[in-house]
Design a binder for these strands. Structure first.
Lengths: 250, 250
DNA sequence: CGACCATTTGAGCAGGGTCAAATCAGGTGG
DNA sequence: CCACCTGATTTGACCCTGCTCAAATGGTCG
């Protein structure tokens, strides 16, 4: 049922020398590398150092804060939440990572992961040893560029979230952001499941869970969305975009 | 007067073949590269593609949002503010960049700078063509690693700022952050000048200027700091750290 | 001295947080 | 098949931090 919704994950590639191999086309690397015109031999080199992980189940950790940093990982299926627990015991949700997205990049600086990564549902991953992928990146300009871009993009994302936006702006941008990211992977942009609870959404958006609940309800009353439990339908995405305002359009 | 406060900027290096050249030791690259044990010949290669820029004066732009992205830059002297102006005309201060820090990293993803960078006082820079430094990074593992780390660190910094901290926590962390960064470059950790106005600080911390003013005053009344105009003295850094709490210690 | 700008100070307001209670979906056991 | 338990979500009432608006202060430079 859930599986059926997934777009094709793997892609068959025939290398120039005639050798065929299978490449997971969900992970950011393959997509980015393919789009950067990386040749097939290089794709195969990249493929060689991938370690497929999972399936993990809801609540399983991908890595924990303090673990020695060895690898970054691309989500193939499911949702991963990254978060920290500060000295006062408060949790800070850093992000939700959908299929195709890469986690662990913030660990490069420092030799340990600075946050926890936990599966919110059934998750599979591609794991890339960081020393090895750096080494490969030195040989493959396209890969190096891809890594630089992934890192750079995360800076931008974090900066936007750091802005002083209203609860409405945050919520609207969050929904549209999910929608766009899901659409980019072949899922429906209009109708999707929230894989995380209200408390996680609230924490991520720096709001109280009660506020998330109220804003969602108001959005529904205003005809912008329809929500039922964790199921969301964007009824008027354009109106939602207007609410998100500068947070998305900048 | 101001100049005298600056620690030594340039460092003389004698390459293995006996050639001597001067290397600016303020910029993050040289520091990081030196500490990564990069050999002298490589340092010279890096030095070859540096373009020294400036001095720029308060109000001069280093680059503007929308300019084609060509280069990243390390601040040698002065303070650079990065900010965006959103569709509603509101300014969002992204950061203040002190000597030794690198700007333009968030432009790598996308072919244009996503923000404006403006000098707050007299600024000099080292400019590195990005295509050329990437190419060099492919040859020099230490440089590639340095770039990855710089990018990764900025993700972490932005994530912390995105948290939901109180005005007191933000202000305390801001002051201590400046202090630490200045100290790392050889300036006094206890006594320094704010090169930015209250409005900029407020905007950066997502507070109102009035709140910044009030919090600073209260910190002074409580004996944590002494402020006069733009001059700050950290009277009780440890107490300030306690106020910053999890924002800095995590 | 006077204009100008940044900063401070004061008073009042409100967005969103907190606390507590009600509701509801899903899982369990009878 | 239904009562019951559990944890998530919603709803209501109230409060507080930090914002807004406005006016005062004070330093700087012609």
């Amino acid at each position: 049922m859930r599986e059926a919704e997934f777009p094709q994950i793997d892609k068959s590639i025939v290398a120039d020398d005639g050798d065929a191999f299978t490449f997971c086309s969900t992970c950011a690397f393959s997509r980015a590398c393919l789009s950067q015109g990386m040749d097939k031999a290089s794709l195969r080199d990249l493929h060689m150092l991938v370690e497929h992980v999972g399936p993990l189940h809801a609540g399983d950790h991908v890595f924990r804060a303090g673990d020695p940093f060895e690898a970054i990982a691309a989500v193939r299926a499911g949702t991963v939440k990254t978060y920290t627990i500060d000295r006062d015991g408060r949790e800070h949700v850093l992000g939700f990572h959908l299929p195709g997205e890469v986690i662990g990049l913030d660990a490069i600086d420092g030799d340990r992961y600075p946050c926890d990564a936990i599966a919110l549902d059934t998750v599979t991953l591609c794991r890339f040893s960081f020393p090895r992928i750096s080494m490969l990146a030195a040989r493959l300009p396209g890969l190096q560029q891809t890594l630089f871009k992934l890192l750079s993009r995360d800076i931008g994302t974090a900066s936007v979230l750091a802005g002083d936006w209203s609860a409405d702006e945050r919520m609207a941008a969050f929904l549209l952001g999910l929608s766009r990211r899901l659409a980019a992977r072949g899922f429906s942009a209009r109708h999707f499941q929230l894989t995380m609870g209200r408390a996680d959404i609230a924490n991520y958006l720096r709001l109280a869970p009660e506020t998330v609940s109220r804003v969602l309800k108001r959005f529904q009353d205003e005809g912008l969305i329809r929500v039922d439990r964790r199921e969301v339908e964007l009824v008027a995405p354009d109106a939602l975009l207007a609410v998100a305002g500068a947070m998305l359009r900048d």
